[in-house]
Design a protein around this nucleic acid. Structure first.
Length: 290
DNA sequence: AACCAGGTTATGC
DNA sequence: GCATAACATGGT
C-alpha cells in the first residue's frame, strides 16, 4: 500500500518523535521503519510503515482484503496526520521571530496522534503527575497483561486493551503493577463509559467542541488537561492549548521569554497569531524540550 | 535529599 | 470561589 507524501511531510522527523527515548510497548521503531499491531474489522494486523522519496509505504504481515486495506490506510493517515495542509502554519512560524527557525528545525514533523480514543484517555490517566519513564513502565505492564497480542517472527506485538477487558480487571493486579488506587478508579470510570456507550470516538466527532468537552469532563478522572490533550491527539482539534501543562510552561518561558508559569492570559497572547494552529504550535513547543 | 513529574478530585475555609 | 492535601513512585 502506498500513500503519496504531501509537502511539509518528513517521515524521518515523525519517526524520531515516536522514538524519542521512552520504552514504548505499542510500536517499535527500527531506524527507518515503524511496526505496530492494529485492530481492523477482520481482526489484528501487524503493519510496517516506511517511506521513500515520494511515498509512505505500508505493508501488512498477512493477506488483507480491500476493506482491510482501506482501514489500514485510514489508520496511518490519522496517526501521521497526513492529510493536513501545513503551508499556512509554516508561513506563520516564519513570520514570527521566536519561531522562525522551527520550519527548518522541525521540518515536516506532523502532530503524531493517538488514533484510539480509549487508549488516549487511559494514557493521560496513567501519565498524570508521574514522570514519563515510570508512566511507560506501568503502561507496559497493563498492555502485556490485558492487551491482545500476536507473535510474528518470534516477536510479540500488542494492541491496547479494550474497555471491556479493563472493566473486568482485578484491581489488586493493578495495584501490583504500581497503579495508584486513584488511577485504577479513573481507568475503571473511563472503561465503563465506553462499555455503556456513553463515549465513543465517532459520536464525539459529530459534536461541537464545547459538547465534546462536557462529555469528557463528566467522567471522574478526566480533567481539563486530559480533555484538551485527547482533543488534540485523538479528535484532531487544531485549536488546543495545554494550559497549566508543565512542559508547555517551560517551553513558553524558553522560547517566548514568558514567566516561568505563565497565566492563561499570557499564553493566549502568545498563541493569538497562530489561531487555527494552536495544537501544532503547542506540539512544536513540546518538541523544543526534547 | 528534597522536589517534581504530560493532573484530578475531595475537602476545608 | 480558591487554596491545599492526597495519590504513588521514580528521576534528577
Amino acid at each position: 500500500m502506498k500513500i503519496a507524501k504531501p509537502i511539509h511531510f518528513n517521515f524521518q522527523a515523525c519517526l524520531d518523535f515516536l522514538n524519542r527515548g521512552y520504552d514504548e510497548c505499542l510500536y517499535s521503531v527500527n531506524e527507518s521503519v515503524v511496526r505496530r499491531l492494529i485492530r481492523v474489522t477482520s481482526g489484528l494486523v501487524l503493519i510496517e510503515i516506511s517511506s521513500d522519496s515520494v511515498n509512505i509505504n505500508v505493508s501488512a504481515h498477512r493477506i488483507v482484503s480491500k476493506t482491510d486495506e482501506k482501514e489500514i490506510i485510514s489508520y496511518v493517515m490519522d496517526w501521521f496526520d497526513v492529510e493536513r495542509d501545513m503551508t499556512e502554519f509554516y508561513a506563520l512560524m516564519k513570520k514570527h521571530q521566536q519561531t522562525k527557525d522551527f520550519p527548518i528545525q522541525y521540518q515536516g514533523l506532523r502532530l503524531m496522534g493517538i488514533v484510539d480514543l480509549f487508549e488516549a484517555l487511559c494514557w493521560c490517566v496513567i501519565g498524570q503527575q508521574i514522570n514519563l519513564t515510570f508512566a511507560h513502565k506501568i503502561k507496559t505492564r497493563l498492555v502485556n497483561k490485558y492487551g491482545e497480542s500476536i507473535k510474528v517472527d518470534g516477536q510479540k506485538y500488542h494492541v491496547f486493551p479494550t474497555p471491556h477487558s479493563l472493566l473486568n480487571v482485578n484491581k489488586e493486579d493493578l495495584v501490583a503493577m504500581q497503579f495508584s488506587k486513584q488511577k485504577i478508579n479513573y481507568i475503571h470510570n473511563i472503561s465503563q463509559a465506553f462499555c455503556n456507550n456513553e463515549l465513543n470516538k465517532n459520536d464525539l466527532l459529530k459534536l461541537t467542541k464545547p459538547q465534546q468537552m462536557d462529555k469528557l469532563l463528566a467522567i471522574k478522572g478526566i480533567g481539563p488537561w486530559t480533555a484538551n490533550y485527547v482533543s488534540m491527539k485523538s479528535l484532531r482539534d487544531m485549536t488546543c492549548i495545554a494550559y497549566g501543562d508543565t512542559g508547555l510552561s517551560l517551553s513558553l518561558h524558553q522560547v517566548f521569554n514568558t514567566e516561568r508559569k505563565p497565566d492563561k492570559n499570557t499564553i493566549d497572547k502568545v498563541f493569538k497569531p497562530f489561531a487555527g494552529w494552536e495544537s501544532y504550535l503547542n506540539f512544536y513547543l513540546w518538541k523544543t524540550l526534547s
